[in-house]
Amino acid sequence: MWDYTDKVREHFWNPRNVGEVENPDGIGQVGSLACGDALRLTFKLDENKRIKEAKFKSFGCASAIAAASVLTEMVVGLTIEQAEKITNQDIAAALGGLPEQKMHCSVLGEQVLEKAIACYRGRPAGAKEEKMICECFSVTDREIEKAVRENR
């Protein structure tokens, strides 16, 4: 099993920026094939095209919650180009490290950010994308079930 750093605990117990940004400029949602969890990120830019606000929702373990929480803090004030450079290693480092078995939870963070940025670049965000995002997750969900079946 694993033991968490104080930073992970702190973010898990007092997660920052839980919820959804209103009228987001970017939306991303991912599911983890490894453990079957889901993470959703929404963000909004200010007039200088810097991230003004970011929020998350998570159906995941303590690491996933902490990773998302710290990510929403890390991206604020960054340009899209800067935010894009954030890797899961950066996220884990910001948490003082993650147990090896939980590194993939920080990968969720990196992926969700990628998705949200792609969404921002691809088309203006809106209610439609939100629906599509969910459909997309159910695809992932099916993939998970397939993976589980194959692993039996």
Binding site: M1, A34, C35, G36, D37, F59, G60, C61, S63, A64, Q101, H104, C105, D141, I144, E145, V148, N151
Partner: peptide
């Protein structure tokens, strides 16, 4: 019995065997 707490990252084989969906066993 969540997958996230098992070292193998698989949900409980017991809950799965009892027909539970991934989501619920989580």
């Amino acid at each position: 019995g969540s997958a996230c707490t098992s070292t193998s990252l698989e949900p409980s084989h017991v809950l799965t065997a009892c027909g539970m969906t991934h989501e619920l066993s989580h």
